[in-house]
Simulated assay, not measured.
Amino acid sequence: MNKLEIQNLTKTYGKKNANDNINITLENGVYGLLGPNGSGKTTLMKQITTLTTPSRGEIRYNGKNIVGLNDEYRTLLGYLPQEFGVYKKFSAKQFLQYVAALKGLNSKIASQKIAQLLNLVGLFEVRNKQVGKFSGGMKRRVGIAQALLNDPKILILDEPTAGLDPQERARFRNLISQISRDKIIILSTHIISDIESIAKETIMIKEGAILMKGTHRDILGAMEGNVYTIRTSNEEEVHEIQNKYKTVNIQRGVNDIELRVISEKMPHYKETQVVEPKFEDVYMFYFDLENTTEV
């Protein structure tokens, strides 16, 4: 069993706390890291991967401070940053061989591992094609493969499904579920469905601090009774509702308009109904987004 303990972790840039006294414990499984841009997600991941040192606090792996573990800890890490660069003239196979050499892997073992991973991410048939000619989604899959080369015990994925089409995202989710039994996997994404599908717990972060950590049931349960649909045919009423309540969605039908809203008290409109919360509602409620989806 792997155990990562993050204790009183604070990272300060000037007068701003990018991370503010974070305390969480992670064990084997997938954790979704959810928050708006600038919330501190990337700073947290960079500290876990030792790319950034904390201003205060510490991170412990199986009871030992990662600062003292040095290279021993780094050999346990796999990391896919949001901005992932490749050598365009390398083939996928050559690029992974290059990364394997940087990680100090035995060439024979690396060759076998590369073949397995290329097959796993669906790139084996194009392994000799230049990466520069790959689509954005294919490049992300190369990135996922390089992060898995050393069979990491801690896998950090920053927006891993960016640029992937729905079929590729489904393949990615299956892959992550398949390998998560003996790994701590932290997955930061704006695609809520990715977290809903595979994360055993979600960590919600805003302005550098942890808002909530829990299972989907825990998080959705906290929203019970706060999500409603309101039906109306009056456009003026639509504007009034939008001004009074956080509106997640507006769906226009043939004869009426349905608004999905979040409120701690039941809205007083004729056709109002309480509904089961979704993760999209959670995101809107905690991160106070102003954008409304209209269909």
Score class of each variant (00 low, 15 high):
residue 166 P to L: 05
residue 276 E to C: 14
residue 170 A to F: 05
residue 4 L to C: 04
residue 249 N to K: 13
residue 84 F to G: 05
residue 163 G to E: 12
residue 73 Y to E: 00
residue 287 F to Y: 08
residue 208 G to Q: 01
residue 97 Q to S: 03
residue 13 Y to L: 06
residue 23 N to S: 12
residue 294 E to Y: 03
residue 165 D to W: 11
residue 72 E to M: 12
residue 135 S to A: 02
residue 19 N to Y: 14
residue 280 E to I: 04
residue 12 T to F: 15
residue 10 T to K: 10
residue 125 E to H: 04
residue 208 G to H: 02
residue 268 H to E: 15
residue 64 K to W: 09
residue 272 T to A: 04
residue 257 I to R: 10
residue 64 K to Q: 15
residue 50 T to Q: 02
residue 141 R to V: 06
residue 247 T to E: 13
residue 104 G to W: 09
residue 135 S to D: 09
residue 141 R to L: 04
residue 156 I to H: 02
residue 248 V to N: 08
residue 98 Y to R: 00
residue 46 K to I: 01
residue 168 E to Y: 02
residue 150 N to P: 11
residue 230 I to W: 07
residue 65 N to T: 03
residue 75 T to F: 06
residue 295 V to M: 14
residue 165 D to Y: 09
residue 250 I to C: 01
residue 30 V to I: 14
residue 179 I to M: 03
residue 23 N to A: 12
residue 102 L to Y: 12
residue 46 K to C: 06
residue 103 K to A: 06
residue 150 N to C: 04
residue 66 I to F: 05
residue 294 E to R: 04
residue 233 S to F: 13
residue 265 K to H: 15
residue 41 K to G: 08
residue 80 L to M: 07
residue 157 L to T: 10
residue 79 Y to N: 05
residue 84 F to T: 09
residue 55 S to V: 08
residue 168 E to A: 03
residue 276 E to W: 11
residue 121 V to G: 00
residue 108 K to C: 00
residue 7 Q to G: 11
residue 73 Y to T: 03
residue 133 K to T: 14
residue 59 I to G: 08
residue 249 N to C: 05
residue 138 M to I: 08
residue 176 I to G: 09
residue 9 L to S: 09
residue 193 S to K: 11
residue 281 D to F: 05
residue 142 V to G: 11
residue 38 G to A: 02
residue 144 I to V: 12
residue 29 G to E: 07
residue 4 L to G: 10
residue 75 T to S: 10
residue 222 A to W: 13
residue 267 P to C: 03
residue 59 I to L: 06
residue 37 N to F: 00
residue 270 K to E: 15
residue 25 T to N: 09
residue 85 G to A: 15
residue 266 M to W: 05
residue 192 I to S: 14
residue 27 E to D: 09
residue 92 A to R: 13
residue 240 E to W: 02
residue 283 Y to H: 00
residue 210 I to Y: 12
residue 179 I to T: 04
residue 224 E to G: 13
residue 190 H to A: 11
residue 71 D to S: 15
residue 97 Q to G: 06
residue 171 R to E: 01
residue 193 S to P: 04
residue 10 T to W: 11
residue 195 I to G: 02
residue 281 D to V: 15
residue 155 L to S: 01
residue 195 I to W: 00
residue 85 G to R: 14
residue 124 F to H: 15
residue 246 K to I: 13
residue 16 K to P: 03
residue 292 T to F: 01
residue 160 P to I: 10
residue 251 Q to H: 14
residue 187 L to W: 05
residue 67 V to P: 14
residue 230 I to Y: 10
residue 265 K to T: 15
residue 65 N to Q: 10
residue 168 E to K: 08
residue 103 K to P: 04
residue 252 R to F: 04
residue 165 D to I: 07
residue 171 R to I: 06
residue 272 T to P: 00
residue 10 T to L: 11
residue 226 N to V: 13
residue 36 P to L: 02
residue 112 Q to K: 05
residue 279 F to R: 08
residue 271 E to S: 13
residue 271 E to D: 13
residue 181 R to S: 15
residue 209 A to Q: 07
residue 63 G to I: 01
residue 116 Q to I: 01
residue 91 S to T: 07
residue 62 N to K: 01
